[in-house]
Write a protein that binds this DNA or RNA. Sequence first.
DNA 1: GTTTGTAAGTAAGTGTTACTCACCTTATTA
DNA 2: TAATAAGGTGAGTAACACTTACTTACAAAC
Lengths: 182, 182
Amino acid sequence: MKSFSELMQEKDFNSITTAEIARNGSVTEGLIYKYFKDKKDLLYQVLNEHFTAFQARVETRIAMEESSISKLEVIIFTSLESYAENRLLSKMLMLEVRNSLAFFNSCAYGMVRKYAATILEIIQQGIASGELKPETDPYLLRKVILGAIEHACLGEIIFARELDIDHTSSGISEIVFNGARA
Amino acid sequence: MKSFSELMQEKDFNSITTAEIARNGSVTEGLIYKYFKDKKDLLYQVLNEHFTAFQARVETRIAMEESSISKLEVIIFTSLESYAENRLLSKMLMLEVRNSLAFFNSCAYGMVRKYAATILEIIQQGIASGELKPETDPYLLRKVILGAIEHACLGEIIFARELDIDHTSSGISEIVFNGARA
DNA sequence: GTTTGTAAGTAAGTGTTACTCACCTTATTA
DNA sequence: TAATAAGGTGAGTAACACTTACTTACAAAC
């Protein structure tokens, strides 16, 4: 996993060969398959470690917020921050991970679900407390938030443009919570 | 392209072999490479046809709307409709196309840019006419809309769940234009 | 202190698959 | 009619993920 993570800093998933991973890790190719089902399984386990750390960071931060909306704002900000901090990993996540159905059975996807569950709970609390409109579909609001976060980073990640986290996260929050209509 | 489109109805991109495409199209493998740079180029040209048809449909419909917001609502609805109508193609688009940088140099991506440009123009008109808040970042609003559309379909497409177009599109519009805050 | 079971590790494959290339055949045109 | 290009072929090749038969290290159990 260490060897693979190192190589991920240099090149994308399909360009990394199992021979390279083995060589870089000073083991033989065969050994990889003693510990990992296949090359993708190796990737998913690396992602799982990353997601676990991210989830911990998110939970620490939202514990410090009072209102549901400010919790959601913190989630938006922290997500963007994480994308910006781990550009190569994010690129892999957005471009290469989802293209296999195996991902959706992996432990890494389990962490994604946990993250999504956290967001849903906050939204439901917000509706219950009257902060959010009672007619809001919580699942749909979650989708809009997650979609906005991801799409906001997509272009900047792919084309290696810099990402203004503050402007982007406050802009998303403004649109999602207050609406774009004048 | 016809042969490849047929196979796309059955299985995903990586599972379709060039040998199969050739056999199904009653030509030899070598011939494919006379007309297409590689396997992905073939995919991109199929996508390009699809995007061109979609763009035409969108433009016809928005020409019938007066306000910027209703034009954008039409775009949201039409996009969801297109995803729902072409589930396999959409799956490929969301899961398999983006994972290669070559896509971003393809003619298919050119159509995506055109679609994005259409949305941006409408947003800018909306700001100019006072329909949308003057402080709105048009690029960010576009990202939120596009991200919301895509993410709203993602789960339903991947896990083959049915997609309620009316509920989803009106829900997205409500959040994006009026905000979720009570 | 030897046996036994298992985990760690290896080297040499194999099968699949995208892609190439030298060559043939049919149409077009000067 | 000859030249040229376009349409088409089939046998190959290189790369690469993955397998397998085998060896070594090293505990604990008897």
